[in-house]
Design a protein around this nucleic acid. Structure first.
Length: 416
RNA sequence: GUGGGUGUAGCUCAGACCGGUUAGAGCACUGGGUUGUGGCCCCAGAGGUCGCGGGUUCAAAUCCCGUCACUCACCCCA
């Protein structure tokens, strides 16, 4: 048998998990502060849910989904992102009827069949949030502010850049796209092969090309920002104002392109230059048409998602060390009948809420103390035959090596 | 899907260009130095299909071919 994970999947080992928990704890705390509730949804959906949501011509749907046929013949897909499933749950449970605004967050593993590289996996964790109901620009700004607060809370904001833009809506975006294609068409043979392809599939991406030649041509291209319809322009202006008043530092990047079809109006990205080429740690935007697309009542919404592995990678660079599990008290024992006493003392300590760990099997006292040391214990109880016969145990303070005898009955009640 | 780099002990890596005894180091682990006392130090020990398969050769970790994996980048994205 193959004793390894499939390509692109990875284990998160205990030492690392502490850091994950730190990030997750802060996410939970900040989201709660902003009035978001957690929702838990399946890791798989009918394929249709993703195909309709993300757009049938997007890379994710075309070539990156883990899709299989269920026993009854239906097509099932492991979720490549979180929004589609949350919106499906929103519609299926008629959440619109329960409240004019739903604030939901989720976390869990997503699946995309991509070629792995630094910060990019086939099975990866995302934390995300969706704010459904309001169309008001204050909701865009509130969500973005929450993302920023979260990143601040884990000590990363000084290494991150927040960029925002507007993609327009059903009215102005198609017009802009045409304008863009009309601009690039005559230059097609001077574009790189990728961009010639993009001209047909996703002309907005040409603006983002890294090729020098394409960048020169793109520099003179019409900008979405200048082609927003009146309502979209007003919306974007208001979002900026709210962000400013919330003290969220952002820059405008008109070249932001999203890979999913459902985005409208506000889009944003949080990036770093410390993670190689996978530089986006969080991204999101408004998707006013998606709820209706999935069969619900017309409901505007904004949302975002962040990649846990990327956050963890960055957090490791920013704040190395400091996430080891530590036990408060270690219980060592040596001699006849001491193991039972150790077992009871350990249990009694835990009963009082003191994190305690005991030796199993009784090696030399030396090796027990070594283990105590490694466990990070502040105190070690040493139970020896002599002391035990007098109803005593030794309490060793690890840092100073000082020891004193205490009554074994009173030991669990000491203040640690 | 396309390109580059790398696979030697649990981890980080020497050894490879120039084939030649039992393949090394540091860290980690175990035991001892201390018949019941951690960290520092000293001594000892355990741990390896040199990714896998084939080829060349008297002889391959080392040279050749293939293959797999990992990794970085492109594409795309969190």
């Amino acid at each position: 048998m193959e004793t390894r994970t499939p390509r692109g999947f990875h284990d998160v080992l205990p030492d690392e998990v502490r850091r994950w928990q730190f990030i997750e704890d802060n996410a939970r705390r900040i989201f709660d502060l902003y009035g978001f509730s957690e929702i838990r949804i399946p890791v798989l959906e009918f394929t249709e849910v993703f195909a309709r949501s993300l757009g049938t011509t997007t890379d994710i749907v075309e070539k990156e989904m883990y899709t299989f046929t269920d026993r009854d013949g239906s097509s099932i897909t492991l979720r490549p992102e979180g929004t589609a499933g949350v919106v499906r749950a929103f519609v299926e449970n008629s959440m619109h009827a329960k409240s004019p605004v739903s604030k939901l967050w989720y976390s869990g593993m997503m699946f995309r069949h991509e070629r792995p590289q630094k910060g990019r996996y086939r099975g990866f964790y995302q934390i995300g949030a969706e704010l459904l109901g309001p169309e008001d620009p204050a909701s865009d700004a509130d969500l973005i502010a929450m993302v920023w607060k979260f990143l601040e809370s884990i000590g990363l904001s000084d290494r991150l850049t927040l960029e925002i833009s507007s993609l327009g809506d059903q009215r102005c975006r198609p017009q802009y796209k045409e304008k863009l294609v009309a601009y690039f068409k005559p230059e097609a043979d001077r574009l790189c092969p990728d961009c010639r392809r993009r001209l047909g599939t996703n002309p907005l991406r040409i603006l983002d090309c890294k090729e020098e030649g394409c960048r020169k041509i793109a520099a003179g291209a019409p900008k979405m920002m200048d082609n927003l319809c009146g309502e979209c322009a007003a919306h974007f202006g208001a979002v900026r104002e709210y962000l400013g008043s919330a003290g969220v530092p952002y820059t405008i990047n008109p070249k932001i392109v999203r890979g999913l079809d459902y985005y409208t109006r506000t889009v944003f990205e949080v990036t770093t230059n410390e993670l190689g080429s996978q530089n986006a740690v969080a991204a999101g935007g408004r998707y006013d048409g998606l709820v209706e697309e999935l069969g619900g009542p017309g409901t505007p919404a904004v949302g975002f998602a962040t990649g846990m592995e990327r956050l963890v990678l960055l957090h490791e660079k920013a704040h190395p060390g400091g996430f080891r599990r530590e036990i408060k008290v270690f219980i060592a024992y040596v001699g006849e009948g001491t193991e039972t006493a150790a077992f009871r003392l350990t249990a009694a300590l835990r009963e009082r809420g003191v994190p305690a760990e005991m030796e199993y099997g009784g090696k030399s006292l030396k090796s027990q103390l070594k283990r105590a040391d490694k466990s990070g214990a502040v105190y070690t109880f040493i139970i020896g035959e002599d002391e035990l016969s007098r109803g005593k145990v030794k309490l060793r303070r690890m840092e100073t090596s000082s020891e004193e005898e205490v009554d074994i009955e009173a030991a669990p009640a000491l203040s640690f």
